[in-house]
């Protein structure tokens, strides 16, 4: 069963940036890539309890604002120390200017 949740509008996020989205006690990070695609991952770094939405987006990488942990936000892949565990990703679609993420995956 699909469970698409409206996270924000497309205009809420600048290109090559990220924003935080909280839903039912969980926190997510919504990304807009330099080529204007949207992605979503869990909102907390897998290294420690730090919100990735305060981090820096460079191309397809999100850097954690605390320890420089780096993930490919498109795949969730951890890119090296101090992060060793991949980030969970979620399907995203944009409809009528709204960014929707699928949480039932």
């Amino acid at each position: 069963m699909s469970d698409w949740i409206e996270a924000c509008t497309a205009d809420d996020i600048d290109e090559e940036d990220v924003m935080r989205f909280d839903h039912e006690g969980r926190t997510f990070a919504i990304y807009r890539s330099p080529d204007d695609e949207f992605f979503a991952t869990d909102g907390l770094c897998t290294h420690e309890h730090i919100h990735l939405a305060d981090g820096l987006v460079m191309d397809d990488i999100i850097e954690c604002p605390k320890h420089n942990g780096r993930f490919n936000y498109k795949t969730g892949q951890a890119k090296g120390a101090p992060v060793c565990v991949n980030l969970r990703t979620y399907p995203v679609k944009v409809e009528a200017g709204k960014v929707l993420i699928q949480l039932s995956q």
Binding site: H47, K66, H67, P82
Partner: peptide, 13 residues
Amino acid sequence: PVTWRWSHARHHT
């Protein structure tokens, strides 16, 4: 470089 990368992460945490 390995030990201190991790120790410094802890220092910031």
